[in-house]
């Protein structure tokens, strides 16, 4: 396998890790903060289960790829930090998979909510340990920014996946009208967090504005920011829908089931989701072109 092929496989595995994280952490955050009763939805459970498998397999393959490419002794090829992070992550995912039926037996409130957010936190920390946040200067800033970025990603993209893939296709308008306003608030907070932490992390990694603007890392970062802006524009449609729901509730509760904009919302959220995965792709490329730590 030549270096270009290795980079390609490595990037694909990284995208799968991000996608798996969004499916797992996103669903858990969605249940915890937006729709606790959503644990009863079989499709959301499958989404979580599928995400668990994707995240675990992609993490393990990503860990073993350098050893497979370079050969030699396994332990000498495993970065200590990467190895521990991946094995802890997969251990948590195995426990989650084994106890998923018990966990989803009743709504995600109280202890279940704490457990769900703890799982997200542990998985996020293992991803941070594998990232360039723990190398070079400004480590405290980069670690805090990356953890915040991961939680915000889980909150926003996880909710989008749950809504666009599971809830909207079922056309359960009552649930949708209950969930959308709560998700809208979570999405707003997540977006603010993403902008702040993403910018702080990029500046810390590239060591200043000038270095950021004059590097290939900066170029990919700009592409990601552009895609993010497109997502914001699309997300604005969902925000308007949330506003309409609130207006209808206040003014004519009996008409709540009509929800005329649900099909347009489905289309827009589908586009938003596709853009989100393009953002994940650019994130994988950002890791590839990140400047080495000083």
């Amino acid at each position: 396998m030549n270096p270009a092929q290795v980079d390609l496989v490595s990037s694909l595995l990284r995208v799968l890790v991000y996608a798996g994280f969004v499916m797992v952490a996103g669903t858990l955050v969605f249940w915890s903060l937006v729709w606790p009763a959503g644990q009863a939805d079989e499709r959301l459970r499958r989404l979580l289960g599928g995400g668990t498998i994707v995240l675990a397999l992609a993490s393990l393959l990503g860990l073993l790829l350098p050893w497979w490419v370079r050969g030699g002794d396994l332990f000498s090829s495993l970065g200590r930090e990467d190895g521990v992070a991946v094995l802890v992550r997969v251990a948590v995912l195995v426990v989650l998979a084994g106890f998923l039926a018990d966990f989803t037996a009743s709504p995600v409130v109280r202890v279940r909510r704490v457990v769900a957010l703890a799982v997200v936190a542990v998985v996020a920390v293992t991803l941070v340990v594998q990232s360039n946040a723990v190398e070079g200067d400004w480590q405290a800033v980069k670690v805090a920014a990356t953890i915040g970025h991961l939680f915000a990603t889980a909150g926003w993209l996880g909710g989008l996946v749950a809504l666009a893939v599971v809830i909207i296709p079922q056309e359960n308008v009552a649930v949708l009208d209950e969930v959308i306003p709560r998700f809208s608030t979570l999405a707003f907070v997540s977006v603010v967090l993403l902008v702040v932490t993403g910018t702080a992390h990029a500046l810390a990694v590239s060591d200043g504005v000038d270095a950021l603007l004059s590097s290939s890392y900066g170029l990919v970062f700009m592409v990601k920011a552009l895609l993010f802006a497109v997502m914001l524009l699309l997300g604005n449609h969902g925000r308007r829908y949330a506003g309409e729901v609130t207006f209808r509730r206040l003014n004519s509760p009996e008409r709540i089931a009509l929800s005329p904009g649900v099909h347009a919302l489905a289309v827009v959220m589908g586009a938003e989701l596709a853009t989100a995965f393009a953002v994940l792709g650019t994130t994988a490329i950002l890791v590839l072109v990140a400047p080495p730590p000083a």
Binding site: F75, R80, G83, V84, L87, V90, A91, E135
Partner: peptide, 20 residues
């Protein structure tokens, strides 16, 4: 399974090379 993986993590923490 989780116990085996965590035991593996302990071994990697002792035997693995620092990333640098």
């Amino acid at each position: 399974g989780a116990a085996v993986l965590l035991a593996g993590a302990v071994v990697v923490a002792r035997e693995g090379m620092p990333r640098a």
